[in-house]
Design a protein around this nucleic acid. Structure first.
Lengths: 239, 239
DNA sequence: CGAAGCATTGAAGTGCGTCAACAATCGTGG
DNA sequence: CCACGATTGTTGACGCACTTCAATGCTTCG
């Protein structure tokens, strides 16, 4: 069940048997969480971090109006609040989009790791930096891309992130988000998200039904998105 | 000249004399860079990171059309590509907005620090996480806030970040950005950035002339922005 | 089988973009 | 110190991508 996370790490750096043992030793236990729960409230003091073993989560920032923006969608293998280790409290909420299985990692164990395993420390630091890179790409989308391009881009990004952890098939992947949730990730209204989705279908780039996304024309989708996966930093790292 | 960076760190955690010595030992030298230069190109391999000692920089992501999005504005004291230490190459460019003085920090010295100073390691890790928090707040702005609110929010954020490093006065601060640069940070066109600026002036919230921003009504400005500085993580940390 | 959430559609409105012109300021060379 | 081109700031007219409001059908699941 830790395997998704190990796959995610190994897609970026080599992990030795010893290091893998250390990683396995970080987690003290697992839990199940229902769908549509706020797992971590903004501002709450944290003494452990959460590894998403299975399911979908999102980070969400809210305005007084009730409008909210998802700043990242999380999939299996993501260390959803690793940044909470260095920050001690979060500036946003973390909520479940589906039922999830999670692993708990006490900050004291991370602290020990920082003292003893410099290479792993840098690897986990890197993971939080990749999240930041995902945020930056989202800023580019929100600031400059059209609704179509933005949605296409999100589908491309999730495709790769799911492939890394073995949760995609060649033709697509399970995408258990409602259109409202999609719209909250894309900075659109539900209505316009719906119309944008229809336009992607009409162009025969994707199909989406029964919570399954079929990518009919991947190069076409990537073209619309102007997608360049470099920001996901997949591939061997020299350290 | 390192003092701005030390102020920035100390606004978040206590730094011992010994740690301060280590920090001072990271930098191998300083350089001057002219305005409007690309200091670091996207994708280039990095073996050192850059500390911004004085001046203004921006991180920029580009689309094929030539449109670009600034994902962060940097001021004195910022470790502009500390994330390059863990990522080895950047997904964006770093460019100077004004003439800048920079300090160079070889990655090997950072690597040594990670091995020897777990507390400092966590502190620098925290700094990259605060950048990520700034990205998330920008995503909320770009996705949900109006042009007015967005611009007001940026002015509020810069006010606090400049106060931390002693570069603001009670009434405002030097803001050497052109309207084009402002618009690239805000995901707006220059024309609309201009009109938005005028509306903020008309409401007597700010004045902006000769590259100096005067905040006429800070609570008012923060109100328009729905500004809550929590995401900047200013204040003592428990580690 | 009924209620609640989810997806879809139409019509109308608006915030911001686009295009185009001009004014003000800056920087540089003569 | 002025001349002059280039950059920056400003304004107006118009267009459109996306929003808003409101209604209707479709799923899903107690």
């Amino acid at each position: 069940m830790l395997s998704a996370h190990l796959k995610k790490l190994k897609a970026r750096i080599a992990i030795s048997a010893e290091e893998e043992r250390v990683i396995r030793g970080l987690m003290t236990g697992t839990r199940r969480v229902r769908a549509d729960e706020v797992l971590i409230h903004a501002g709450a003091e944290l003494d452990h971090s959460v590894l998403l073993l299975d399911g979908w989560m999102a980070r969400s920032k809210d305005l007084q109006s009730g409008d909210r923006q998802f700043t990242e969608i999380h999939v299996a293998g993501d260390f959803v609040d690793l940044h909470g280790f260095a920050l001690k409290r979060l500036d946003h909420e973390i909520l479940t989009l589906t039922e999830c299985q999670i692993g708990l990692v006490p900050h004291e164990r991370l602290q020990e790791m920082v003292g003893r395993h410099p290479r792993l420390t840098r690897a986990f630091w890197m993971l939080t930096n990749i999240d930041a890179a995902i945020h930056r790409e989202a800023a580019l989308s929100l600031g400059q891309r059209s609704a179509m391009s933005r949605m296409a881009h999100l589908f491309c990004e999730l495709f790769i992130r799911l492939e890394i952890v073995g949760k995609a098939s060649p033709g697509g992947y399970e995408l258990p988000l409602t259109q409202r949730e999609l719209s909250e990730a894309l900075g659109l209204t539900v209505v316009h998200a719906n119309r944008t989705l229809q336009e992607l279908r009409r162009r025969e780039l994707i199909e989406l039904e029964n919570r399954h996304l079929t990518v009919l024309n991947r190069p076409g989708l990537e073209g619309v998105a102007e997608f360049d996966p470099g920001y996901l930093y997949v591939g061997a790292f020299p350290f």
